[in-house]
Amino acid sequence: MNTLGAATLEAFALLFRGDAGLWEIIGISFRVSCAAIAIAIPPAVLAAFALAHFEFPGRRLLISLSNTLLSLPAVVVGLTVYLLLSRQGPLGDWRLLFTQPAMVLAQILLAFPILVSMGHAAFQAADRRAWETARMLGIPPARTFFMVVGEVRFGLLAAMLAGFGRIIAEVGASMMVGGNILHHTRNIPTAIALETSKGNFSQGIALGIVLLVMAFVLNMLLQYFQGRGRIAL
């Protein structure tokens, strides 16, 4: 099958020639996933902190719940969001299905358990002394919270990168709730699925290369920050 070699060459050509259609898809992918992470982070960090810091009934249940949701299949999230946003669904009036906000919503739901779970671990690893010391120095709770966040920032950054890695490469939910509409909701993974089904491998390979390079960079950063996190403790 010599088409693979030819398609790969053409893929590199597409990437380096700056093919507008290709880079538009890459842009949509990053825009949607960055928005999802940015929206998910504040509540996820608060939730992770609450789980690590406060004793309240149901805490253990919530921790195992967020750990369970880590392995939630993306298509289940996709189905849930689809049913919520569909015209017959409870939020149908928002008319969000097959738009970028719908994809953002699905990706938030996908990233949230990772952020909470890894964030919880980071806060757990943070020293109780940090919180106590700050409080005894008369620093108000809100500012103390931000100081502790600062102390575990590498762990939280690692959580963010892991969450981003999951959603940027995720195809099932994006396809279901985004609809893979060209110029609107077609992102890297759904475009790969489509181009492959059209037999247009070079586009698919080019986008695959982007994902691979990104996965590599994310993993390097993750390892770096996890290393830093350990040293900083």
């Binding site: 299905l97 097959f98 609809g179 059209k198």
Partner: peptide
């Protein structure tokens, strides 16, 4: 591209999207 939406899907899925939109 503003109103003509290429969905890149099969007939059934496209019909579903058209129905929703």
């Amino acid at each position: 591209n503003a109103w003509r939406l290429e969905v890149g899907r099969g007939m059934g899925a496209s019909l579903q999207i058209a129905g929703e939109l």
